[in-house]
Deep mutational scan, measured.
Amino acid sequence: DHWHVHIDGERIRLDGASEEFIRTLEELIRRGTDARELKEIIKEYLR
């Protein structure tokens, strides 16, 4: 599956992301997590 998110107007691909990770991201977004912080979390995950 190819997922991607838009954060700060930037399109970030989440290739190979699990549904669990996507749900976690959605939860963080709902909580109002800062965009820079979200991008860091995604970069760490994709390593």
Rank of each mutant, 00 (worst) to 15 (best):
K39H: 12
R23H: 09
L28W: 05
F21P: 00
I29Y: 04
I29M: 07
L38A: 01
I7G: 01
A17T: 05
I41S: 03
L14V: 15
D1C: 11
R47H: 14
F21C: 01
E20K: 08
V5C: 06
E27W: 08
R47Y: 12
H4K: 03
L46P: 01
D8N: 08
G16D: 08
G32A: 04
E19S: 11
I22A: 04
Y45I: 03
I7C: 02
K39S: 05
H2P: 12
I41E: 02
D15V: 13
S18V: 04
L38P: 00
I41H: 07
L38H: 00
L46D: 02
E19K: 13
L38W: 02
G16Y: 10
R30M: 12
K43H: 13
L14R: 00
H4Y: 14
E20H: 10
H6K: 10
G32N: 04
I29H: 02
E27Y: 07
F21R: 00
G32T: 03
R11V: 15
R23T: 08
I42R: 00
T24H: 15
E44L: 07
A17D: 03
I42K: 00
W3F: 14
V5D: 02
F21V: 04
W3K: 11
I41F: 10
L14G: 01
D8I: 02
I42W: 02
L38T: 01
W3Q: 09
K43A: 15
E27L: 10
H4D: 11
D8E: 12
I12R: 01
E44T: 04
R31V: 13
A35W: 06
E10Y: 06
H2R: 10
D34K: 08
D1E: 12
D15T: 10
I41W: 09
L28T: 03
H2C: 05
E40C: 07
L38V: 08
T33V: 14
G32Q: 05
R31Q: 14
L28I: 07
D34H: 10
E10R: 02
R30W: 09
R47L: 07
E20L: 09
T24D: 10
T24Y: 15
S18P: 11
E26A: 09
S18C: 01
E37L: 14
R31P: 01
E10I: 03
I12A: 01
I7H: 01
R31W: 08
D8R: 02
R31F: 10
D34S: 14
I29E: 02
K39T: 08
D1R: 08
L14T: 01
H6V: 15
E10K: 05
E27Q: 09
L38F: 03
D34Y: 03
Y45R: 01
L28R: 04
L25Q: 00
K43L: 14
V5S: 03
D1L: 12
G32K: 01
D15F: 12
E20T: 11
K39I: 12
K43M: 14
E37K: 12
I7W: 03
A17L: 05
E37C: 05
G32E: 03
T24K: 13
R47T: 14
I7D: 02
L25K: 00
D8F: 02
K43S: 06
D34T: 15
H2E: 12
D8S: 04
T33A: 11
Y45S: 03
T33S: 08
R47V: 14
S18A: 08
I12Q: 02
D15Y: 12
R13P: 14
L25P: 00
R30D: 07
L14Y: 03
G9E: 06
I41L: 14
G9L: 06
H2T: 14
R30P: 00
R47E: 14
L46E: 06
H2A: 12
E44S: 06
L25D: 00
I22G: 02
A35S: 13
R23K: 13
D1G: 14
D1A: 08
I29V: 08
R11L: 15
R36S: 13
H2K: 09
R11F: 15
R23W: 08
I42H: 00
I7N: 01
G32I: 02
E44A: 09
R13L: 12
A35Q: 07
I12G: 01
I22F: 06
E40V: 08
S18R: 03
T33C: 05
E40I: 11
I42M: 03
E26D: 10
E10S: 03
E44C: 06
H6C: 13
E37T: 15
T33F: 08
H4M: 13
T33I: 13
R13T: 15
H4P: 04
K43P: 00
H4S: 12
S18M: 04
R30Q: 09
E40L: 12
I29C: 04
I12Y: 13
Y45Q: 04
K39M: 14
G9R: 02
W3R: 11
H2Q: 14
D1M: 11
L28H: 08
L14C: 02
E37F: 12
K43G: 11
G9Y: 05
I12F: 11
R11W: 15
E27F: 04
A35H: 09
I22R: 11
